[in-house]
């Protein structure tokens, strides 16, 4: 269970990115966090992982307040998550295989053959097995995201995967493929399911994958509900933001 209690954070020049934000989420949920660029969506993920500390408020992960933990104590809480950053954030000096098995090499006692087998399995699952020996700079944007997803899944059995703008900057077909992948990887029944939080400003992608939608406005939660509530919202700004969604429905 993830719980934010009155969390506020401001960056330089006292600009409040998140203000008095509170919400709860289960690890098995499929959540999309929507909002305009610079609205604090990515900061929310970073707070969840303890990569930045809030100015005020508490963040509980499985009942443990992570705002009071040291870097080494945060490790256990971070192990419950994996994250896929917008640019993939692959290690430039490592090839695809080494990127994917990075976590295995650090923590497991698996033999070289077993690690190789696991890397191939994961890459096969994501449809990029042929890229196993390539370096990150040789991959297209879509492939880089796939490798990043493979690395996130190879992490030590995460309970939840965090996707930061996973479909941004990709052509519609590749973005669609990534969305299908995200959905496939979150199959299963709660509470065993590995859930996800996808941060995006592309509403059409969010509705393809998520079941719960949170809209951030001025650092606060302006909307929290399911797809039905999102479609019927009376909030003019949210309606404008989700205009793409209404447009695509009309076409359908």
């Amino acid at each position: 269970m993830i719980e934010f209690q009155n969390v506020s954070i401001a960056f330089n020049n006292n600009h409040a990115v998140l203000h008095d934000l509170s919400f709860k989420a289960h690890f098995y949920e499929k959540i999309a966090i929507l909002g305009i660029s610079g609205g604090g969506k990515t900061t929310l993920l970073r707070l969840m992982l303890g990569l930045v500390q809030p100015d005020s408020g508490r963040i509980f992960i499985d009942g443990q307040d992570i705002t009071e933990l040291s870097e080494s104590e945060l490790r256990e809480s971070r192990m419950k998550f994996s994250i896929v950053f917008q640019e993939g954030a692959l290690f430039d000096s490592l090839n695809v295989r080494e990127n994917v098995v990075f976590c295995f090499r650090e923590y497991s006692n698996l033999s070289q053959e077993e690690i190789e087998k696991k890397a191939r399995e994961l890459l096969h699952k994501l449809g990029i097995e042929e890229a196993i020996d390539l370096m990150p700079e040789e991959l297209s944007g879509g492939m880089q995201r796939r490798v990043a997803i493979a690395r996130a899944l190879a992490g030590c059995n995460p309970k939840m995967v965090l996707y930061d703008e996973a479909t941004s900057g990709l052509d519609p077909l590749t973005a669609d493929n990534i969305c299908s992948l995200i959905t496939d990887l979150a199959k299963g029944e709660p509470p065993e399911r590995t859930g996800f939080i996808i941060v995006t400003h592309k509403v059409t992608d969010a509705v393809k994958v998520a079941e719960r939608f949170i809209y951030l406005r001025n650092g606060e939660i302006a909307f929290d509900g399911d797809i039905g509530a999102l479609r019927n919202t009376e909030d003019p700004e949210l309606r404008a933001f989700t205009g793409e969604l209404h447009l695509s429905e009309k076409h359908l």
Partner: peptide, 18 residues
Amino acid sequence: GSMMLGHQVDILRVQGVD
């Protein structure tokens, strides 16, 4: 510096690597 900007350092921290 480029590892910091490219979130690679964040990935290390998330994966529990110092």
